[in-house]
């Protein structure tokens, strides 16, 4: 099944689930007396949210359409990508493996999705140099996706024979058991490069610190703000927050990702504009603009 069909399934599922949840909400909220919640198909109190989403989504669709037509959409080069290439290069020079840790969350986390895209590209680079790529995984759902990403990477590099399924390893569902086992891999197999890209939680410093102690070059990236400080101190380069998504869009040049990134840039521009206008008006005592953002 190609990407187009998968996207269609995802879209239909999302619409169907949203409709189902709305119907359930409407049916089951048979209100006991005195209830303060009132369920409708459309909540006029949140009209501002609807308008904002409509603007941002229209922009995303417009950018996607432009990307599909082959129009060039500029994204600045993400410095972290050079660091990934450098890390893989060093592993090649040393003839050692590369350890790719795609975070601990499931496929329903967009960070894991972005990580899988980057994994595919890393696999493509690694396949050319004939060094092992080890991918330890915490969530069962992620295993088939990672297998597919790495297989595709090796295939694109013209080296399907070099793909080793056993290196995509399901470790454990338990967070710290997973961390302990990955630490074990770092210490025993001594990869020359550790790439930690995805959604990380309390295990981030345990992994990054162990990796640093082995002397491996480390590149990390996550959108989990509270874990970024550990990566910043323990890794050679860190992709901060949205840079992870930008990197996946930059690498894949996939119209949907590019369009989404450009759309989110537009949203940021609107927010900056709103903050500038709002702050000026608030400072001179004008309040109506701020009220536009109040949600009941």
């Amino acid at each position: 099944m190609n990407n187009r069909k998968i996207s269609l399934v995802i879209l239909i599922s999302a619409i169907w689930l949203t409709l189902c949840s709305q119907i359930l909400l409407a049916q089951e909220a048979a209100p006991p007396t005195g209830t303060k919640f009132d369920y409708h198909w459309f909540d006029t109190n949140r009209l501002n949210v609807f308008i904002t989403l409509a603007i941002v989504f229209s922009a995303i669709l417009w950018f996607i359409a432009r990307a599909k037509k082959g129009k060039s959409l500029f994204i600045r080069r993400i410095a972290g990508l050079d660091a990934i290439e450098e890390a893989v290069g060093r592993a090649t020079e040393m003839g050692k493996s590369v350890l790719y840790i795609p975070g601990i969350h499931d496929m329903n986390d967009i960070q894991t999705v972005a990580s899988m895209i980057i994994l595919g590209n890393v696999a493509k680079t690694i396949a050319r140099y004939d060094i092992p790529l080890i991918v330890p995984i915490r969530q069962p759902f992620v295993v088939p996706v990672a297998e597919e990403a790495v297989r595709q990477g090796y295939l694109s590099a013209g080296r399907p024979d070099a793909f080793m399924k056993d290196n995509i390893r399901f470790i454990s569902d338990e967070q710290f058991a997973y961390a302990a086992a990955v630490n074990g891999i770092m210490l025993r197999e001594r990869p020359a490069a550790n790439l930690l890209l995805g959604s990380f939680y309390a295990e981030s410093l345990l992994l990054a610190e162990t990796g640093a102690s082995t002397g491996a070059i480390q590149v990390a990236g996550t959108a989990n703000i509270h874990q970024l400080p550990f990566f910043v101190v323990a890794c050679d380069y860190t992709l901060i927050g949205e840079e992870l998504f930008a990197a996946s869009a930059y690498l894949s040049r996939e119209p949907k990702l590019l369009g989404s990134l450009k759309g989110s840039d537009l949203a940021k521009a609107l927010i900056v504009l709103a903050i500038i206008i709002g702050t000026i008006l608030e400072t001179i005592g004008v309040k109506w603009f701020t009220k536009l953002f109040v949600v009941q």
Partner: peptide, 19 residues
């Protein structure tokens, strides 16, 4: 018939994104 597993995966991704 392993490709069947992509459907529930799509379901989870789509549903969570919607929610």
């Amino acid at each position: 018939i392993g490709w069947f597993s992509r459907w529930p995966l799509a379901f989870v991704v789509g549903g969570t994104a919607g929610a």
